[in-house]
């Protein structure tokens, strides 16, 4: 049976609300602290690196180009941390998953709640960083308002993949491998410079990861350059998300119900 079919969306909402209730209590540390860095990154890239990049990149100022990448990566990393360390903490150290599973809520709904919670935090970050970029004049098109939506979809995938890793690891230190992969990928994701500067083979590798598409769509929305290609990127993202989520749900069930 497909695990995605066992989801009860009411239960997903109820577990999501639990995370939201805790977030509301801790909002100072949860919300403000992690947003400090993006502000300074935008300042650094805009005034610092931006001043060194004399010409335009892909026809737009460097801050607009790199801003889209930073925006996407900030949001996606939030989903990543929420569903790695955050979920691991709730699963192992706080045994929150055990508590939830003693109620009518089943593993699949719990898993999707964790994934959507990761995406929710990414959405909040996305909105905030977008506002910063807008203040700095980096958002060139009203289509830019759609970016947080695209980012939350990308974040769903990142969250699902992270929860899959979380369901599989037996020791928190194994995240080091996952993080090494993610932060290496960052350099070929198209976040900091155009992908076509890289060898073809690396480009193909980069496009396999749907984050590359998410960054590309975000950037094009920011510039206001709407293309059919974006639809395919979106479709690919959705398909990969569905497969990854299914795997995450299965693996979490195997871990929690044994």
């Amino acid at each position: 049976m497909i695990s995605l079919g066992r989801i009860n969306y009411g239960d997903v909402t109820r577990v999501w609300l639990r995370n939201y209730d805790v977030y509301k209590r801790l909002w100072r540390t949860e919300m403000i602290a992690p947003l400090f860095e993006p502000v300074f990154t935008v300042i650094g890239f805009g005034w610092g690196v931006g001043s060194l990049v004399a010409g335009k990149v892909m026809g737009v100022p460097y801050l607009t180009f790199v801003g889209a990448g930073l925006l996407a990566f900030t949001a996606l990393l939030r989903a990543l941390f929420e569903c790695t360390y955050g979920s691991y903490f709730r699963m192992v150290y706080q045994s929150t998953f055990d508590a939830v599973l003693c109620t009518p809520v089943e593993v699949e709904s719990l898993a999707l709640a964790e994934i959507s919670w990761g995406a929710t935090k990414a959405l909040l970050d996305g909105i905030f960083v977008l506002a910063i970029l807008w203040i700095f004049g980096a958002v060139l098109s009203p289509y830019g308002l759609l970016i947080p939506l695209v980012l939350s979809l990308g974040a769903l995938w990142v969250a699902a993949l992270s929860l899959l890793v979380t369901a599989r690891i037996r020791d928190i230190n194994y995240y080091n491998f996952y993080m090494a992969f993610v932060f290496s990928y960052l350099w070929i994701s198209g976040a900091y410079f155009p992908l076509d500067k890289l060898p073809k083979i690396v480009q193909y590798l980069a496009w396999i990861v749907p984050v590359t598409g998410t960054i590309d769509i975000s950037r094009k929305l920011m510039i206001g350059k709407i293309e059919w290609m974006m639809l395919f990127e979106l479709l690919y993202l959705i398909i990969v998300f569905a497969v990854t989520a299914e795997l995450a749900l299965r693996n979490l069930r195997r871990r929690m119900v044994s």
Binding site: V22, R25, Q94, S95, T96, D98, A99, C102, P104
Partner: peptide
């Protein structure tokens, strides 16, 4: 699970609430 109440070996309250 709707009809039982469970107290597991380890306390798993929500520490932040």
């Amino acid at each position: 699970k709707e009809s039982v109440g469970v107290v597991p070996q380890e306390n798993n309250l929500d520490p932040d609430l």
